[in-house]
Design a binder for these strands. Structure first.
Lengths: 249, 249
DNA sequence: GCATATTCTTTCAAAAACAATCAAAAAACA
DNA sequence: TGTTTTTTGATTGTTTTTGAAAGAATATGC
């Protein structure tokens, strides 16, 4: 059996059973343990599976335990609900800023019908926006490969030429004391400047963001409206200091 | 058994079984191992299969429709050869501009190893560049959904802050009289400005571009070097007016 | 927590496959 | 027919892959 064929078989077995032992794979492929081990190392290096003691298992990304996956999709649904609600604040003729990030990304399908101008610093957003036929401007500057966000001095400079009716922003942490926080200072700088240029300011946040604090603050709690959803939590504390819009899912 | 017949048989076997060993093919064709090896090398070179240790396997994701696709892939290979040659002009430490367009897109894999800064106005380029871990800046401005290119007054303004060691540009038409032409005036404006900001200027053009004229001229024939490939054509006329680099494929 | 049993990593040598070369055979050509 | 070119198969030394073995690391059972 040739190497690629063996790899195929291994991947197939692992995908079907979620997991496979070395012995099992030795039986199937008629190769030695050493060879199987080397194969598994190689396949892990290529990111096709995860090596575990005694064999291999699928990468959690594929199809994880129901519990964990459920949580993931649930959060996604939550984000979509928030995004849909957020999009309802956009009127025809508006110029809006859509920040990089997964929650704001969900807004894009809901913006399709509208006659608007969108500025974004998110790479993924760009493609989706133009795909939906939305008039889109991209912020110029350095592209961070990890987050796919445009940042840096050039981007800040570039921002100055724009004024927005609304801006929509993701966030990593929200507390009454520390306000809105995010891990990356460069992205924070963009957010901060954008807020200054917008008439209406919306922060999109699912329930996991409340009570958290991240590295860099980009605004006080009262400087933007929050759009979130009903998750059993009450946001009374926040309602005193800011305008918080809660959509029920 | 004649050579073409042997090739047919080999391809057939590989396609049916996903994979085939040298021994297996020796049995079927009654040819020697050396001959089979040579066949496999040849067939791989033609892109029909993938050579692996011990034999051959099908090219993953290969849906072969020879007729229609052939012309397409041939042009693609031509573009890749040109792109590879073009990339060889980039040195460590350079700041370069890579224009939107399919030919320049092919350059990206060849830029991977280099320590450079890339500015681009191509959306597809952006993703590929960051994926390859290249330090990338995007031009800010309006995104044209059809071509995925950033254009407009903002982009022109944005360009002013940069200076390039090299710029690499696609083109739609090249003639001695009309110089370099492209259909979209807005993209032409970007090209024109970029040329002014670059120390060395390269136009990448496969053989279909010569003798054509498109709507908007962005440079005279002598204002940039041409990188193209040998396609039986002689480019003597051009050599008198400009620096034309021909890579043989 | 300790002893036992697996499993892992590293190393090494054998086996298989490889690329390069060359001369014979076949085919093409004149 | 004789010459040239191309294709082929055998041979060589080299590289890659493989399986086995020994000691280290990890998991398991009590």
């Amino acid at each position: 059996m040739l190497t690629p064929e063996r790899h195929e078989r291994i991947l197939e077995i692992v995908k079907n059973n979620q997991t496979a032992s070395i012995k099992q794979l030795v039986d199937v492929t008629q190769a030695s343990e050493s060879t199987i081990r080397r194969d598994l190392d190689e396949l892990e290096r290529q990111g096709h599976l995860r090596r575990v003691h005694g064999g291999a298992s699928i990468k959690q990304s594929a199809a994880d335990e129901p519990a964990m996956k459920d949580k993931q999709t649930k959060l996604q649904e939550e984000k979509r609900a928030i995004a849909s609600y957020a999009a309802s604040f956009v009127k025809d003729g508006d110029s809006i800023f859509v920040d990089a990030g997964s929650t704001t990304y969900e807004m894009i399908p809901f913006l399709k019908q509208k006659d608007i101008i969108v500025v974004t610093n998110g790479l993924d957003h760009l493609l989706a926006l133009t795909d939906h036929g939305i008039r889109t401007y991209v912020l110029g500057g350095l592209v961070k490969s990890r987050t796919g966000a445009v940042v840096g001095a050039g981007a800040l400079q570039n921002l100055k030429q724009y004024r927005f009716d609304n801006c929509f922003m993701g966030v990593n942490g929200i507390t009454l004391e520390d306000g809105f926080t995010t891990p990356d200072p460069e992205e924070a700088a963009i957010k901060q400047r954008t807020l200054q240029l917008s008439r209406e300011r919306f922060i999109l946040a699912d329930h996991t963001k409340f009570g958290e604090t991240s590295f860099t603050q980009f605004a006080d709690i009262h400087e933007a409206d929050i759009i979130t959803n009903d998750n059993g939590t009450t946001y009374m504390d926040y309602a005193e200091k800011t305008n918080i819009k809660v959509v029920t899912t």
